[in-house]
């Protein structure tokens, strides 16, 4: 197998005695979309900034594009593109001027820049708006322009730190199409988000919580391996009452309300279906349907974080 695009070993960052990133290790295969998921303050940006050479790690090691982040930061820089969490183009320059500046800063020749300019404009959907001041663009456009500027110099790996933060759902979807496009061109994409639903777009995921990686794998693997017990989606009458009744049963593992139905986790699918119908029937509640469903990633992550909190370890390092 080819050398991974990114390889991280026990990477740690402390700020004073606060551990922001706690010995994380993972590998990112080339050309994949790698999703780094976690709530605000989980340590996503800190990890990215270490990998880009903007922040010195406290301990641990990592290579990006085959280059050691401590020993060869200049080579790392040449291999990567970075889009920071905060919008960081020049608001007082026009779209074309921003592209021109970053092109020059990446050392592109005039000719190379002339070729890349239309490509970036097309990517960002800003053809015809070259002369608009960047600060007048909507957030979605700004983000796409920032992505375009981050890949101007055709890096092999791009780091996108919450590129869809604060953007409306339609723009988010369009942005993910762009990310897919990059991946199809063989570019490795390292992307962070705190929107759990976006994890579905990734090939590979790590969930980071309180500086530690608590789960990982492809979306499918996560759904099937983390939660082994079947989940039944139950449609019935008087669901609040039904929920209260089922919660008291020893054979019911977890319960939650999802819209107009209940999610009930049980040991065994067939037996569970039968027990639910019998128990609710005794109370005069009719069960219309009880189908086994695939857990959502949200179910997975909530399960994992609760599991982590249950061991009492993750919580302690936090202030």
């Amino acid at each position: 197998m080819a050398e991974p695009a990114i390889e991280v070993r026990s990477l740690t960052k402390r700020f004073g005695d606060f551990v922001a990133v706690d010995a994380v290790s993972f590998e990112v295969e080339r050309g994949r979309i790698f999703g780094f998921l976690g709530a605000n303050g989980a340590g996503k940006s800190t990890t990215i900034r270490m990998l880009c050479g903007l922040l010195d790690p406290t301990s641990g090691a990592a290579t990006v594009g085959g280059h050691d982040i401590r020993r060869e930061p200049e080579r790392v820089k040449r291999a990567i593109g970075y889009m920071s969490q905060r919008f960081s183009l020049y608001g007082d320059l026009t779209v074309a001027e921003n592209i021109g500046f970053f092109g020059g800063a990446y050392g592109l020749s005039r000719r190379a820049l002339a070729e890349r300019l239309p490509w970036v404009l097309g990517l960002a959907g800003l053809v015809g708006r070259e002369r608009s001041l960047t600060r007048t663009l909507s957030v979605g456009w700004k983000q796409r322009l920032a992505l375009g500027c981050a890949v101007l110099h055709e890096p092999r790996i791009v780091f996108l730190d919450e590129p869809t933060g604060g953007v409306d759902p339609a723009s988010r979807r369009r942005f993910w199409e762009l990310i897919n496009g990059l991946s199809e061109r063989g570019i490795t994409v390292f992307v962070t988000t705190h929107y759990l639903d976006e994890a579905e777009y990734c090939n590979d995921i790590r969930l980071i919580h309180a500086g530690r990686i608590v789960a990982g794998g492809s979306p499918r693997e996560l759904k099937t391996s983390v939660i082994r017990n079947p989940i039944l989606e139950v449609a019935c009458d008087r669901i609040v009452e039904a929920l209260e009744i089922l919660q008291k049963e020893p054979w019911v593992l977890e319960t939650s309300i999802f819209g107009m139905s209940l999610h009930i986790s049980v040991e065994d699918e067939e037996e569970g279906r039968r027990l639910i119908a019998a128990r609710l029937g005794r109370e005069g509640i009719a069960v219309h349907r009880a189908d086994r469903i695939m857990p959502s990633l949200e179910d997975v992550f909530i399960h994992k974080i609760e599991e982590q909190a249950g061991t009492g370890e993750a919580g302690e390092a936090r202030p």
Binding site: R49, C52, G53, L54, K77, R78, I80, G81, Y82, S84, R86, F87, S88, L89, Y90, G91, F102, A105, Y106, G107, C149
Partner: peptide, 11 residues
């Protein structure tokens, strides 16, 4: 403004 990080990533 955060543009310094972008500059530091460039060459």
């Amino acid at each position: 403004r955060g543009t310094m990080d972008q500059i530091r990533i460039s060459s």
